[in-house]
Write a protein that binds this DNA or RNA. Sequence first.
DNA 1: GACTCCCGCCATCGT
DNA 2: ACGATGGCGGGAGTC
Length: 359
Amino acid sequence: MAFLSLYNQDNVETIGLDDAATRLGVERRRIYDIVNVLEGVGVLARKAKNRYSWKGFGGVPKTLQQLREEGLRENFNTFNGNNYVKVSDDDEDEKISNPITSQNDKLNPSSVAKSSTASKTDNRKEKSLGLLTQNFVKLFLCSSVDLISLEEAAKILLGDAHDPSMMRTKVRRLYDIANVLSSMNFIEKTHHPETRKPAFRWLGTRGKSDNGSANTSVLNESKKRIFGTEITNTSFKRTKVVSTIDENSNQIQRRICKLLVKCEDLENEVDKSNFEQDLRHSSKNFQFGPFAPVTVHVSKFGATQNSTVKQVHDWECLASSYRPQYHNQALRDLFAHYVEAWKSWCSEVAGKNPIQLIS
DNA sequence: GACTCCCGCCATCGT
DNA sequence: ACGATGGCGGGAGTC
């Protein structure tokens, strides 16, 4: 969303929730959700009340690396097939970088006995979106499974507890997370081959192996003007909060929202046109959806990528054909901008190559 | 009828 | 005490 255009500036390093909510014309509550999952993958870091520091996409690889390690250390990789791991609630903690899970708790795996030390606070923390996000990601990072449906994920992350009610709730949350992650192209929505059931596939840090930095300029430039576009919806959004709203106005507002978002997208398309054609020559004809082809820019340098990236390309081809047309996708659209940030980050990180896609 | 996910109440947390 | 957070699930749109 506009979130990206607002904060991906090189100079931005701190984000105010109120500011974000206002400028984006979004309920504060929604910002919390977004921010939490972003923090989960290391794009943001909570600094203080109402303040988040923008770590950018550069922090993602490291975070993912950690998540993967933790996930393996735990049992995230053992759920293939039919026996789930029951990730229970406790688990994880990231050393220095990830405050979400951090802390000192831990140590006492599984079991319900968390006697002394917090149980209330922890309990709440355990259910946080941020943590759920990380666990969700671990699922991909630590297993060989390619596709995971939210229901499966919920089941796994829920451990045993097959309470249908809990499942529903968990799935709802996973939707929240999945939306943000797909907006950033960390994952992609598809369908199980046979089942036809919707599922998600990890795309992750594809392209980080990229060694170029040539396109950085283009990208930076493209994010400048997208800026003002989103300020438009601030007003009416606010109107809605006045509580004196009726169904109709609600509907209308929603539609307007969509329209605005659409417009924004169009503009973005124009902005992206530059590097898009750039990509075009090397990538096997992908028709890029409404979002930037983050996943393919590696090929920009024509040169052959390492095998890992290669195969990735393959299933991605498949995936691209499914590219669902999102309809009511306010959030996703808003996040579309992140794609660009991601792109530019990729070029920056260049030779770093922190995490090698788990085959 | 299954999927999505918007919306906002209200428990908790932070200060 | 009070504002900041954010879990949670009803239920309204979309396929």
